[in-house]
């Protein structure tokens, strides 16, 4: 008996398409189901690519902004005694959400273990932005030295990166020329293309597994959940 002969409760006949969906004996129903899986796959792939594109665009912007403030010297504790000036408190905050690529890579890493490079990259980017904002403020105040810098981590929701950075800008005569150092030092070059390929392959695999699983379940067990949901008698 096919699902088309099902007896839906009165008033719920319009749910017929749900019964048909995924029914391999019904071409419309089956293609509707497969089409749904494909749409979900495309949607996720689009978000993944959009996220990766935004990330790489942001990386480029970050490098430009860092180059502009490279002249400000930055110290974690007490600065060298020759650098003096009127102290002024500067603070910066940043809250970042990881890119979808990073979230997916984290899932994979939690299964196979190892270093979560994308996560590390997100953390680095947050730190760079926090320090960059401090430097921009110092530069805005006309200070060439930023001392006593501290960065503290805050939890704002799950999986987000939030930092609060504080420091003391020393407003005074410009310091002697020093090596131009930016926060990008020590940052690993991203291998984003490889990650995207892995992620897309995984998405396609997941979609294929979903369709295949449904096919197998239908073949060997029948539409048991539909029978249960819609009380179809066989």
């Amino acid at each position: 008996m096919s699902a088309r002969d099902s007896e839906l409760p009165p008033g719920l006949e319009w749910l017929e398409f749900l019964v048909k969906m995924g029914d391999q004996d019904d071409p419309t129903g089956w293609s509707l189901w497969v089409g749904g899986v494909v749409v979900a796959l495309l949607f996720n792939a689009a978000i993944l690519l959009l996220g990766a594109w935004l990330e790489s665009r942001h990386d480029r912007k970050l490098l430009e902004m860092e180059a502009a403030t490279a002249g400000v010297r930055i110290f974690a504790g007490r600065p060298p005694p020759d650098l003096m000036g009127v102290p002024h408190l500067v603070q910066a905050a940043i809250v970042m959400a990881p890119a979808p690529l990073g979230r997916l890579m984290l899932l994979i890493r939690r299964i196979i273990g190892g270093r979560v490079v994308t996560r590390q990259r997100d953390m680095q980017r947050t730190r760079r932005l926090a320090l960059l904002r401090l430097r921009q403020q110092a530069r805005g105040l006309g200070a060439g030295v930023l001392a006593g810098v501290e960065v503290c981590q805050i939890g704002v929701g799950r999986g987000r990166f939030a930092l609060l950075a504080t420091g003391t800008a020393l407003i005074g005569p410009p310091p002697a020329p020093a090596p131009q150092v930016t926060e990008s030092i020590g940052a690993e070059p991203p291998r984003r293309r490889r990650e995207i390929v892995i992620a897309l392959a995984l998405l396609i695999l997941a979609a294929a597994a979903t369709v295949e699983m449904d096919y197998l379940v239908d073949t060997y067990f029948g539409n048991f959940w539909k029978r249960w949901v819609f009380h179809i008698k066989e």
Partner: peptide
């Protein structure tokens, strides 16, 4: 915004106001 990732400006603002 969290779906595509990136800075959550509303929360950055929140932290700035708080501090």
């Amino acid at each position: 915004k969290e779906i595509v990732g990136g800075e959550l400006r509303g929360y950055t603002e929140l932290l700035n106001e708080a501090r």
